[in-house]
Design a protein around this nucleic acid. Sequence first.
DNA 1: CAGCCACCGGTCATTACCTCA
DNA 2: GATGAGGTAATGACCGGTGGC
Length: 282
Amino acid sequence: MDCGRLVFDSSSRHGHMLVLGGANSIYRDFVLGRNEGTGSVFTMEEGSNKRRPFFTSPEELLEEEYYDEQLPEKKRRLTPEQVHLLEKSFESENKLEPERKSELAKTLGLQPRQVAVWFQNRRARWKTKQLERDFDRLKAAYDSLLADHEAQLKDNDCLRSQVVILNEKLQAKELVDAGPAGESSAVDRVTSMQIQAKMEDHLSTGSGGSAVVDGEGLHQIVDSSGDSYFPDNFQEMVQGPVDGCIVQSEEDDGSDDGCNYNLDGGMFPENQPADNWWPWSN
DNA sequence: CAGCCACCGGTCATTACCTCA
DNA sequence: GATGAGGTAATGACCGGTGGC
């Protein structure tokens, strides 16, 4: 590689002098007299063809070959020790007061400008990392909510299906009660329609509120005390003598996954997939 | 209001490291 | 296995804009 050769990069936005394979941009800026506090212009003849790797050990840096305060253009990446001290300083306070900047620069053998730039970059990159972490957290929370939402929609579908079954059972019971003469009482018919309407209202996915009825919700619905939507004998009706169908709340363990109510009597078998349990499933 | 200074966001250039043909 | 090209992350630095003093 052509070490230490100076070229003019006309394509660069800044029109900098580039040093191919040799010194770094500090050198580049020294060439243009940009570095803070130097005031000197480094000439090509003064440049060195010596090259050191980025991660030179502190010991090596202390050697005359690599470390010479009179030749800052040789410096490239900061040494691990310099970075360590800067990091410690950044941890204690990520803003840099002028006094601390000067002190750090003196301690580290850097230009104050370098210290300031290092802090600026450190803040910007810390912020980027922080944004990434925040994004990951938010995404995880969103995914969790989405999964919960989908589970609730599934649960809602199960409950809707149960409404259909219950209505069928109610109608069958009405036919039995009506007897051969078809003398179904008007009161019973009205009650049945009301039950159907109320349950569908509860299970509605409309914007008026949650479409999900969990175990506790059904307790409220079924509860005969207070302002229940259902008639006092609702439990008896749905558990009636037709075929012993029972609407029963799942053990209230706080979970709302899956379907909660067993229409055919008995509790939902623990850990049993719904596919093996629902009467309309194979 | 102008000037100075510090900061931020965006960007560049360079290097080290990794993968792959 | 050695090697070179290409991709990528990390890093040091600058520019332009902005806001405080």
